[in-house]
Design a protein around this nucleic acid. Structure first.
Lengths: 251, 251
DNA sequence: CGTGCCAGGTGCCAT
DNA sequence: ATGGCACTTGGCACG
């Protein structure tokens, strides 16, 4: 019996679903008219309305309204769930420590209470991430320019971590900042920070923003700062393997 | 009849729930053993497992595994749902245009099919955001320093938009970059970009990072760049009202 | 743990 | 639509 569900449950029914669901590490889903209070890093109030509530066995807690991809309120994994029973209503409370955050759902009317003892050992395989773009350029440095050689991947420098660090055919140090999508002002600032950092210890340093495209503002700032752009799209192929720290001595 | 649910539904039952749910603008929730394919900005595959699927009337589509706050796969609001019926299984397809993205869920076994015709007119009221911090400082500029006056809120400059722009008691232009939480390298880079921008047209410009705290790296970079820090925590009080563009002529 | 940074980020609001 | 940026960002990998 993987699943259990009760429409318009009595208070006893509801409490059964909750305790069985929690103790059996199931995913609990409740349709309810409710009100929500949150206090922690921020603070929020949500008045009465119909929502979908999900409680996962890892402590994740989601409250969804009828619109948007994002939950209106939530609690991250690791939070602890408990419930209080009052005269005519049940209150579900989720507490997170460090930072201390509490989420309180006042259930005014429950339309459906259910849980699923989910078995799932599969993990997502994702193609087209920046990590894959990095590996791709690492293996095919010529897509940046002829004679380009990679020295480091994910190299920590004074203020931050550089995606790729290499040398051009003239021996200049080259910093690459990769973006899997259209690069914006933030990306240019990031690249500029790395270039300025490295210029302090090494002579000339080139900075290249590598992305499928640029926003108008990014282009303006990039040109003003004497930085460069190479158009590269993230490859959508199966990730080969964990390409860890690659170090080629000093530089 | 706000809610409908069927445990271990027949294919006909399932199709009824889906079409009734979609046409009545309900939130549809399905517990199922399934497999998922996604292709769009990136590409992903997810093997067989038990998941919770949510389809919202605005086109939002969520697939949740038993862990994490984030859906393993999803589709944003505005996507269009349809379904294909095969011999022994149903396939739910969600398509987004611009960018073109498709999400396909192959339902191998459905444990529970349900929907809720949710009525909800309430919106979240949130306290402690950066916007509130901005309004707070706008109204109480002395929390930055004695004699500080605000000139602009959300002021667009050459490369970006400054949170707050003002003048100190000596007449120097002052840029404030606000963070509702511990400020990091990114915040410092952002502030530096604004300060450099304004220095080109105006004489001396001070940059102050306003946040509850700083990361170690942010502190180092901030000091090296001659920028300043003021410790301010975001206020958790009810938002007063929409404080729009505040312009005090030129500066 | 804190620091740094990506994300199929999402959402909001501006031009 | 594009742009610039915040978010209770979440999640991960590394020191």
């Amino acid at each position: 019996m993987k699943v259990k569900s009760i429409e318009n449950p009595s208070q006893e029914d509801l409490l059964n679903i909750l305790s069985e669901g929690l103790s059996s590490e199931a995913i609990i889903t409740i349709f309810a008219h409710c009100r929500v209070h949150y206090d922690g890093r921020a603070k929020s109030e949500l008045g009465n309305g119909d929502r979908v509530i999900i409680i996962k066995p890892d402590g994740s807690f989601l409250i969804h309204q009828r619109e948007k991809r994002e939950p209106v309120n939530w609690q991250p994994p690791g939070s602890r769930v408990s419930f209080q029973v009052e005269e005519d209503r049940v209150r579900i409370i989720s507490v997170r420590r460090k930072p201390r955050e509490t989420l309180e759902v006042e259930l005014l009317k429950v339309y459906l209470a259910s849980y699923l003892q989910a078995e799932d050992s599969e993990e997502l395989t994702l193609m087209g991430s920046e990590a894959e773009m990095r590996d791709y350029i690492f293996e095919n440095p010529e897509v940046i320019e002829e004679g380009f050689k990679v020295l480091f991947k994910e190299k920590p420098i004074k203020h931050g971590i550089v995606d790729l660090l290499g040398r051009d055919k003239d021996g200049n140090l080259v910093v690459l900042e990769l973006k899997r999508r259209r690069a914006d002002l933030h990306a240019v600032s990031q690249l500029k920070r790395y270039v300025e950092d490295l210029k302090e210890e090494h002579g000339n340093v080139r900075g290249i923003l590598v992305a499928p495209s640029l926003t108008s503002g990014a282009k303006k700032l990039l040109e003003k700062e004497g930085l460069e752009f190479r158009r590269v799209k993230p490859p959508k192929r199966e990730k080969a393997q964990r390409g860890k720290q690659k170090t080629l001595d000093s530089f």
